[in-house]
């Protein structure tokens, strides 16, 4: 097994508010392998975007990392001072947001923004950077790249803009890209194009991707491994095929069952009763127990850790006896 590119150990993110400290992400750990796509899936408020922001060092105050460590290539990056983190953001980690307009400056042409970024983070001459930009735009599928390089972001359509953002994230060949809901704002037919592009490029450049989304379909399409998050905690981590075909955690099962199928018509969708608790009201024990059809006493009292059931890891007491990691 290759060394992981990114290692997250017991990460916790908290918010200090006047009503006390809220724990938005609670003790999550996972590894991202180089060149692989790692999906984080969960409903809004599950803490998946915060996790992405914490990795790249862009947590908005009052949010802050309260616990845990983040390693990139064995270098600890969660405590770096601002300017060092900025260098890592530019060179080693790229970012793609849901709304392409947040990463593009409306006042500059896309060419200028790409060239500037390349010049800041590499040794290229302006001329080389310009050539590289055209090649990049061409690579992300923007027709007539030489002409489009002089256009402003508003002159591109939503899908084309997201391509520019991908070019911007890729331009300094980072080893990791964090993509936060990259296709949510796009139409289905455009979404398919962007997913295919992201998948192809990352394979080609050997870039790892953390794909944060609520859309199980997108995850299934391109991820290698998936983490399912619920109320700030990891409930299941594993290979995408195992999680999609054979989810183990009751929440993952409910989540998969609630997706309407394209292939057959069912009278009723599986539904998980109730709603995900807010940060103020996370219950003791397993956070999912009030909604779980299998909950028993233990779930109400103690919080389950990730249990390695091979192939996937599940945070659920139901699998306690299946722990095959050998450290019980």
């Amino acid at each position: 097994m290759p060394e992981p590119l990114l290692k997250i150990e017991h990460l916790g993110i908290e918010f200090h508010t006047r009503r006390g400290t809220l724990v938005a992400v609670d003790d999550i750990s996972f590894d991202v392998l180089p060149g692989k796509v790692f999906g984080i899936v969960g409903e809004s408020g599950a803490g998946k975007s915060l996790t992405g922001q914490a990795i790249i060092g862009l947590l908005e105050p009052p949010g802050r990392i309260g616990a845990g460590r983040i390693f990139l290539n064995d270098q600890r990056i969660d405590q770096l001072p601002y300017h060092q983190m900025r260098r890592i953001r530019g060179k080693k980690i790229g970012m793609i947001f849901q709304d392409p307009l947040t990463s593009l400056n409306p006042l500059y042409t896309v060419g200028k923004q790409l060239v500037e970024t390349i010049l800041t983070h590499s040794e290229m001459t302006p001329n080389q950077a310009h050539q590289h930009t055209i090649a990049l735009l061409d690579e992300v599928g923007i027709p007539a790249a030489e002409k489009r390089i002089g256009h402003y972001p508003h002159q591109f359509s939503g899908g084309m803009r997201q391509r520019v953002v991908i070019a911007l994230a890729l331009c300094v060949s980072p080893s990791l890209i964090i993509a936060d809901e990259p296709t949510t704002a796009l139409d289905v037919s455009i979404q398919a194009q962007i997913i295919a592009l992201l998948k192809g490029l990352c394979k080609e450049h050997d870039t790892a991707v953390i794909l944060i989304t609520h859309d199980m379909g997108v995850i299934a399409e391109i991820s290698d491994r998936v983490a399912v998050m619920y109320a700030g905690r990891l409930v299941e981590v594993g290979e995408v095929r195992d999680i999609v075909k054979n989810p183990k955690h009751p929440y993952s099962q409910g989540l998969m069952g609630s997706i309407p199928s394209l292939h057959h018509k069912s009278e009723e969708l599986t539904q998980i009763e109730g709603t995900m608790p807010g940060l103020m009201e996370i219950p003791p024990g397993c956070a999912f127990h009030p909604r779980c059809p299998h909950a028993f006493d233990r779930c109400r009292q103690r919080r389950p850790g990730l249990i390695d059931t091979k192939p996937s890891k599940v945070a659920c007491w139901l699998f306690e006896n299946e722990d095959r990691s050998g450290n019980t």
Partner: peptide, 18 residues
């Protein structure tokens, strides 16, 4: 073009054009 969460192995071919 819809991403399929059921992993049916169907080849989803991206369509060009906007």
């Amino acid at each position: 073009t819809i991403p399929d969460p059921e992993l049916t192995g169907r080849s989803s071919q991206p369509v060009t054009g906007e």
